[in-house]
Nucleic acid binder design. Structure first.
Length: 372
RNA sequence: GGUGGGGUUCCCGAGCGGUCAAAGGGAACAGACUGUAAAUCUGUCGGCGAUGCCUUCGGAGGUUCAAAUCCUCCCCCCACCA
C-alpha cells in the first residue's frame, strides 16, 4: 500500500530520485510539499495546486484537532474528501506547535499539555492521541509526535528532548501498529539539536523501530545557515538508505538544492506560500519584492522564463497594483507563482539526478542567482 | 446679513505659552519571513556639511526671555439661523 523505491543515484554526490507509492497516487522524489496547515494551502484551491505541480501537501494535527476537530472531519472519511484534495497528504504531528506555541504549553513524559491559542481551553496531546487524530484525518503519511527545541540549546536540553522524542516514537509506533492501518505510513523524527553525536544516537534508535520513513527535525530554528547545513549533512546519511528522508521545515531554494545533494527526498516549508502573501516572489535570478516602487510601471511578468499561470498572464505592474491595493487576488497569483517556482526547481533536480548531472545543475543554479 | 465652530508637517487628525520637527492613524518608501497563532511584523517618513543648525502649524502684524498655542486685522471653509 505504501512503498518507496529508489530510481536513480548521482555518482558525484548523495542526491537520489525515488518513487513513493501511496493509495492516493505516486510521488516523485525529491519533492517539495506545500504547507496547508488548516486544511488549506492558503489562497489556493486544489486545482491551482495541481496546476503548480503539487504532488503532496501537508496538514497539521494540532490545528485541525482544535478546529474543526475530528467530529467534523471524521464523517467525511478524512481530510481528502473534506478539503477536496485527492492526492497524498502528510500530516505533521503537532510537535512543531510544542515549539512555536511554547508559552502556552508544558511538556511531560505523557505528552504535550497546552492551552488552545484560540480559546484558552486546556488539552493534552500524547503520542497516542496524535496518531489517533492523524488516523482520523486519514493522512497518507503520519508523523511521530516529537519535541522540537529552540536554538541555542545546551547539550543536556537537546539530549532530553531527543530521548523523549525517541520514547514517544515507540509509543506512536505501537498506537499505529495496533490500529493496523499500514496504508497510513508513520515517519519517525530525528532530533538532537546541533550535536552530531546526539543526532547519531537519535537516528540509530529510530532506525531500530523500522518505520516506513524518517525525518530530520529541529532544523531552521534560528541557527546560522552553515550550522544547519552541517547538521543536515551529518544526519541525512545516518537515515536508512532505502527509506524516504524528509527534512522538516526547510527551506530556501538554495537549502533545497544543498540538502538534495545530501540525499534528502522530501521538504516542506511555509516560505513560498507565506512570502507570496507578503509580496516576496522567487525567481531563478533571486527574490523580488513586488511592493517596490521600481515595479510600478513594469510591464514584464515576474520571471520571463516562468511558465506559471501568473507569469503567462500578468505583469509586475498589475501584481504590484493588486498588492498595494490589498486586492485578494494577489495572494492567489503570488502563491501560484512561488509554488510553481519551488516545484519546478524540484522537477529540475529530479531530471538532473536521473541524467546524472546534478552537480552541473547545482552550479548553474548558483550562477543564475548571481545574475539577478 | 447674524451666531457658533474651524484652517497643523503628503492626507486625516491631536496639541492649545517652554519638555514640539509637533501624538495617533493613513499613504509612501525600504527590510524581514525556513514542520504557518503571519494577506503578518519591523524600520524610515521637513531640510541639512546633523550630540547642532535652518525652515514649518491659513496670511500679515503684535505681546513675551520664549508662540502651533495669547492679542489685532485680513483671507478661506463648515454648521445653524435669517
Amino acid at each position: 500500500m505504501f512503498s518507496f523505491q529508489l530510481t536513480a543515484r548521482s555518482t558525484d554526490c548523495l542526491a537520489r530520485t525515488g518513487r513513493i507509492k501511496t493509495r492516493h497516487g505516486e510521488i516523485q522524489t525529491p519533492i517539495f510539499m506545500p504547507v496547508g496547515t488548516r486544511a488549506s494551502v492558503k489562497a489556493l484551491a486544489p486545482e491551482d495546486l495541481k496546476a503548480c505541480g503539487a504532488q503532496i501537501i501537508l496538514g497539521n494535527t494540532y490545528h485541525l484537532y482544535l478546529r474543526p476537530g475530528c467530529e467534523v472531519i471524521g464523517p467525511f472519511g478524512g481530510l481528502h474528501r473534506f478539503m477536496h484534495w485527492d492526492r497524498p497528504i502528510l500530516t505533521d504531528s503537532g510537535g512543531f506547535q510544542v515549539f512555536s506555541l511554547a508559552k502556552l504549553s508544558k511538556i511531560t513524559e505523557d505528552g504535550f499539555a497546552f492551552q488552545s491559542h484560540i480559546d484558552g481551553s486546556r488539552h493534552l496531546l500524547t503520542p497516542e492521541s496524535s496518531v489517533a487524530v492523524q488516523l482520523c484525518l486519514d493522512s497518507d503519511i503520519l508523523m511521530c509526535l516529537d519535541e522540537c527545541i529552540p536554538y541555542p540549546a545546551d547539550q543536556m536540553r537537546a539530549e532530553r528532548a531527543m530521548a523523549l522524542t525517541g520514547r514517544w516514537a515507540e509509543r506512536c509506533r505501537s498506537a499505529w501498529q495496533e490500529a493496523d492501518r499500514p496504508q497510513n505510513a508513520l515517519f519517525g523524527i530525528v532530533q538532537g539539536g546541533m550535536f552530531e553525536a546526539l543526532r547519531r544516537r537519535s537516528a540509530q534508535a529510530l532506525a531500530d523501530l523500522d518505520l516506513p520513513g524518517y525525518a530530520v527535525g529541529g532544523l531552521s530554528v534560528g541557527e546560522p545557515k552553515e550550522l544547519m547545513l552541517q547538521i543536515a549533512a551529518a544526519t541525512l546519511p545516518l537515515l536508512p538508505e532505502a527509506k524516504p528522508r524528509y527534512v522538516m521545515g526547510v527551506g530556501t531554494p538554495a537549502d533545497l538544492v544543498e540538502m538534495t545533494a545530501m540525499g534528502a527526498d522530501m521538504f516542506d516549508c511555509v516560505m513560498p506560500t507565506r512570502n507570496a502573501r507578503n509580496g516576496q516572489l522567487f525567481t531563478r535570478r533571486g527574490t523580488l519584492n513586488i511592493a517596490n516602487a521600481r515595479f510600478r510601471q513594469d510591464t514584464a511578468p515576474i520571471d520571463e522564463q516562468c511558465g506559471c499561470y501568473t507569469c503567462r498572464h500578468y505583469s509586475r505592474a498589475y501584481l504590484r497594483h493588486l498588492y498595494m491595493a490589498k486586492e485578494i487576488l494577489v495572494y492567489r497569483l503570488n502563491t501560484i507563482h512561488n509554488l510553481h517556482y519551488y516545484l519546478d526547481l524540484m522537477e529540475g533536480m529530479r531530471t538532473a539526478i536521473a541524467e546524472d548531472r546534478f552537480q552541473a545543475f547545482r552550479r548553474s543554479f548558483y550562477a543564475e542567482l548571481k545574475t539577478g
